[in-house]
């Protein structure tokens, strides 16, 4: 039985999903903070965009993994 593969799949799923969700949620939170803040909303806003960008990179990495053209 392929228990090891099952555990790997479960672990990889959890890790990747949590990464994407945490990054995106932070982005959403920072956008909300930037909307409220009186002082330097621009900085917070750019931080939010950094989070969204990192999230996008994570997704693109996932795409890179599924498309066999790239991986091999």
């Amino acid at each position: 039985m392929k228990w090891l593969e099952l555990v790997t799949v479960a672990g990889a799923t959890l890790a990747s999903a949590v990464t994407v969700v945490v990054l995106y949620s932070l982005g959403v939170r920072l956008t909300a903070i930037a909307g409220d803040a009186q002082a330097s909303p621009g900085f917070k806003k750019s931080l939010a965009y950094v989070c969204f960008g990192l999230c996008g990179v994570a997704v693109l990495f996932g795409l890179y993994l599924i498309i066999p053209y790239f991986s091999g």
Binding site: E5, L6, T8, V9, T13, G62
Partner: peptide, 15 residues
């Protein structure tokens, strides 16, 4: 996100 990562992980890691 969970659906996508589960499918990707499973098709990539062989389960």
């Amino acid at each position: 996100t969970s659906t996508a990562s589960a499918i990707l992980a499973s098709s990539h890691l062989g389960f």
